[in-house]
């Protein structure tokens, strides 16, 4: 009998613990209130599933005139699996609040909400998206860095000079939804495997079918889909605090 009761109890407890909403920790007491909350930096970053974003997320609290407000309480909310360190804080002397974000375990987009209360206790909020890359997209990203980026990315770094400006016909950045979402997965596979002429495009786009394996090309396609900005239909699920 004891076992049965314990089992029931356990089940009920499990049920409640599952349905319990992650209560936002009672933050420090604010000394000021703002009227708006804006992004300073850190939105639209990529990280592997479960990992820390490379840069922290920084938001700023402003008053109605757009002046930074120090001492306002900002709380962050995120879908389950995301950790925020800290989950809430007062804005610093330049009106900013910084938090480190680890994304959830599933590949997809994660919506992070930052909110603060204005002087009439209404919530003002800012929604940001961060992108978690699964195994496949991570592999695709690596391959992109190695083989594709120098032509498809017009920006240069110290280590890597872009070749974009040298090309007679310009490739598109993989994040450019307008171009890439017009191509089906089969199109992408064709142009990557057999080169530009496969889609009646320039031969400046080489054929990679003898260099990369089928699964590597699949990985590149998964990566191209994941980085679409704005997100396309194939970009994977959006996880938000309230469900999906």
């Amino acid at each position: 009998m004891k076992v049965y009761i314990a089992f029931l109890l356990g089940f009920v407890m499990l049920g409640t613990s599952c349905s319990r909403k992650s209560a936002s920790a009672p933050g420090p007491t604010p000394t000021a209130v703002g009227a708006a909350i804006v992004e300073s930096s850190g939105g639209k970053q990529f990280a592997q599933t479960g990992s820390l974003l490379p840069q922290p997320l920084i938001v700023q609290v402003n008053d109605a005139q757009g002046t930074a407000i120090p001492g306002a309480l900002v709380e962050f909310a995120a879908p389950p699996g995301v950790t925020l360190d800290p989950p809430s804080a007062l804005s610093d002397s330049s009106g900013q609040v910084t938090t480190n974000v680890s994304l959830g375990g599933m590949a997809g987009r994660y919506q992070i909400t930052a909110f603060t209360l204005d002087k009439s206790h209404n919530k003002v909020e800012l929604k940001l998206e961060e992108i978690a890359l699964g195994y496949r997209q991570t592999l695709g990203r690596r391959l992109n860095d190695q083989y594709c980026d120098r032509c498809h990315n017009s920006e240069s770094t110290v280590e890597r000079v872009s070749n974009y400006d040298n090309l007679e016909v310009k490739p598109h950045p993989f994040s450019e939804k307008a171009t890439l979402s017009k191509l089906t997965d089969a199109d992408l596979n064709a142009i990557i495997t057999n080169g530009g002429p496969a889609l009646q495009k320039s031969a400046l786009m080489p054929a990679w079918g003898n260099t990369l394996s089928k699964s590597e090309i699949q990985a590149l396609i998964a990566y191209i889909r994941a980085v679409s900005d704005p997100p396309s239909r194939d970009s994977g699920p959006l996880y938000s605090e309230t469900g999906h």
Binding site: Q48, T49, S51, G81, G104, G105, A219
Partner: peptide, 20 residues
């Protein structure tokens, strides 16, 4: 999830493209 690549390392002793 953030440590999942450690499991790849149980067998794969060298660098793997998918496990940065």
């Amino acid at each position: 999830a953030k440590y999942i690549e450690s499991s790849c390392g149980q067998c794969h002793r060298g660098q793997l493209a998918g496990t940065p």
